[in-house]
């Protein structure tokens, strides 16, 4: 009876999972069809007549300069996440160990910034960033640190509460200065929350569209989401073949990465949620 039930659950969820993945399959198949047949019959399997081979991929790569966009996306994400983890973990340690009115104010500011929608600062932020010449992939991380610090500080301070001060105090008695205490003692303890925070920030920054779109110098730098959106020309004319191919190229690396780091991603989500 029990085994029977278990088999039924498995069968049910196999069907549901297949349905869930079906849209991805449709896009993948369409990326190999001639573009005229994509909008006309998106759910038809490719036939000899509609098969386009890799034409969509080559046009897409050319139209979007995809390889370059991927490189910029990678640079921006890696630098931003690195900078956020370093700076906010230091900040969070300080504000949870030195409790004054000022540090409490910093904490409240961070919590507040988590809720504020981007549209509130969109216009002025892009002007300020231009004024300060922060419009390249190498300087954009400063903006991400500024706008995205909230969540990271919040997660780190939440975790710091469960870390006993005694270890740090004994390190101090042994003659360590604050910097050595942080990098030698605290940072290793923070490792699990570093991973969680890093994953949450990576998911956000890698997929972010509007912030880089408004701030980057678009003639020279585009990220993957910007490149995909640029396939839509003036009023609705879209090369659907190239679009399908680029969607596949945008999705595949994430899925592969996910399958490898699934454990960390899932525990990162859970940790992020508990801290809320």
């Amino acid at each position: 009876m029990k085994r029977m039930q278990s088999a039924l659950w498995t069968a049910l969820f196999t069907v549901l999972s297949a349905l869930y993945l079906w849209p991805l399959g449709v896009v993948a198949l369409n990326s190999f069809k001639k573009k005229a047949f994509i909008s006309r019959a998106p759910f038809a399997l490719p036939t000899a007549r509609t098969w386009a081979g890799f034409v969509n991929y080559t046009t897409g790569l050319e139209l979007t300069n995809f390889a370059q966009s991927a490189a910029y996306s990678l640079i921006i994400t890696v630098l931003s996440v690195g900078l956020i983890l370093l700076c906010t973990s230091m900040c969070a340690w300080y504000i949870s160990r030195v409790q004054t009115r000022a540090t409490h104010g910093v904490y409240l500011l961070c919590v507040f910034s988590m809720v504020v929608p981007f549209q509130m600062v969109m216009f002025t932020l892009s002007k300020v960033a231009n004024l300060l010449q922060l419009n390249t992939p190498f300087t954009l991380p400063v903006i991400y640190l500024g706008f995205g610090a909230g969540l990271a500080v919040f997660m780190f301070t939440g975790y710091m509460r469960s870390v006993p001060v005694a270890i740090e105090e004994s390190a101090m008695i042994d003659g360590c200065g604050p910097l050595r205490i942080f990098f030698g003692v605290v940072a290793p303890i923070l490792q699990p929350v570093m991973v969680s925070t890093g994953i949450l920030e990576t998911m956000w920054i890698w997929n972010d569209y509007l912030l880089p779109y408004l701030i980057l110098d678009l003639k020279r730098y585009r990220t993957i989401p910007i490149a995909v959106q640029y396939l839509r020309g003036g009023y609705g004319s879209v090369d659907m073949g190239a679009m399908m191919a680029m969607l596949v190229l945008a999705i595949v690396p994430i899925v592969v990465l996910y399958l490898f780091c699934q454990k960390y991603i899932v525990s990162g989500i859970v940790a992020g949620a508990v801290k809320g």
Binding site: M90, W93, Y94, R97, I143, M172, P178
Partner: peptide
């Protein structure tokens, strides 16, 4: 310990706060 750490604020808090100023508070 709090007193010893306190004067290190330019190292620990300032970078994040400067970025926050540019990226959030001023805008």
């Amino acid at each position: 310990m709090e007193r010893a750490v306190k004067k290190y604020w330019p190292v620990f808090v300032l970078p994040t706060m400067l970025a926050c100023l540019i990226g959030f508070v001023i805008p």
